[in-house]
């Protein structure tokens, strides 16, 4: 009897703790949303009864280059995804099913990239792209990420679990290597592509340092870099505008997260555990 009462107390306390932590954790985001919906004067006074306004969002959207930044980010993410899917699928198939000289050494080299990420090779990669004459293009932001060790590893693991008999059957029916890959392996790996895609999209949607380095004009800069025009004002920062821009830039990803919460969590898990 006593144990049951204790338990109920403990459960109540834990629920309370969970909620308190959730409120603390959500507070920065809620505060940001609140600021973005008010006039600057009301924000400074922290007047909770002040009237709401969407003026800041309208302002950001009409601020000349902002829609362009959206487009750039969209192009960037699409480019990276298409290239990564293609290259990783081909290489993953090679490592999963083919014997070729130097395979094991190559595989170790590929795995090495998991540690030496392009993020830390900014100096030389900038020089390379400069030599190619590609700086200040969206392609330059995307290219260092086309070859993805993580993607190759992920596809290799997935393709290895496909029964070899399916491969044989396709070949007996006369399909070549690429046809077999596309008609047998790729359809079976759909959930893996989704997981990989979500991780990759959120990484490149959010990437900042490299795009900042390699671009300097409106036609190439993605959202994360473009966002900075709102935080570098001469007369201090216009907080309602900056917060509105921040939420707008994160908007598509946040909405996608709300819609595909389970898939997001699953794919981050898969990506992490590799």
């Amino acid at each position: 009897m006593k144990v049951g009462a204790d338990n109920r107390w403990q459960r109540g306390l834990e629920t309370l703790a969970a909620w308190l932590l959730a409120i603390v954790w959500a507070a920065p985001l809620l505060y940001c949303a609140w600021t973005s919906l008010h006039h600057p004067g009301d924000v400074a006074r922290m007047d909770l009864s002040a009237p709401l306004t969407v003026h800041n969002y309208a302002y950001v959207f009409n601020a000349a280059p902002f829609p362009r930044y959206f487009l750039n980010t969209f192009i960037l993410v699409t480019m990276v995804i298409v290239a990564q899917f293609t290259l990783s699928t081909l290489a993953g198939y090679a490592f999963a099913r083919f014997r070729f000289p130097g395979r094991n050494v190559m595989f170790v080299l590929v795995l090495l990239q998991l540690m030496i990420m392009p993020d830390v090779l900014i100096v030389e990669n900038y020089r390379t792209l400069n030599t190619m004459g590609l700086t200040d293009t969206i392609l330059a932001i995307a290219m260092p990420y086309f070859g993805s060790a993580f993607g190759i590893f992920l596809m290799r693991q997935t393709f290895k679990s496909v029964p070899k008999e399916l491969d044989d059957a396709a070949r007996i029916e006369g399909a070549g290597t690429l046809r077999t890959l596309v008609s047998v392996y790729v359809p079976l790996a759909k959930p893996v592509y989704l997981a990989y895609g979500l991780v990759s999209v959120s990484y490149h949607w959010n990437n900042f340092l490299w795009p900042l380095i390699v671009t300097n004009s409106v036609t190439a800069r993605p959202l994360t870099v473009g966002l900075q025009i709102f935080s570098s004002g001469d007369q201090g920062i216009a907080w309602p505008i900056l917060t509105a821009a921040t939420l707008l830039s994160a908007g598509p990803l946040l909405v996608a997260f709300l819609l595909f919460q389970r898939q997001f969590v699953q794919s981050f898990l898969r990506a992490g555990i590799r």
Binding site: L227, Q228, T243, L247, S249, V265
Partner: peptide
């Protein structure tokens, strides 16, 4: 708990 993970570090920094 999980929402900040989805945000860009730049967005988080602004907030």
């Amino acid at each position: 708990y999980f929402a900040p993970t989805v945000l860009a570090m730049v967005a988080v920094a602004n907030i």
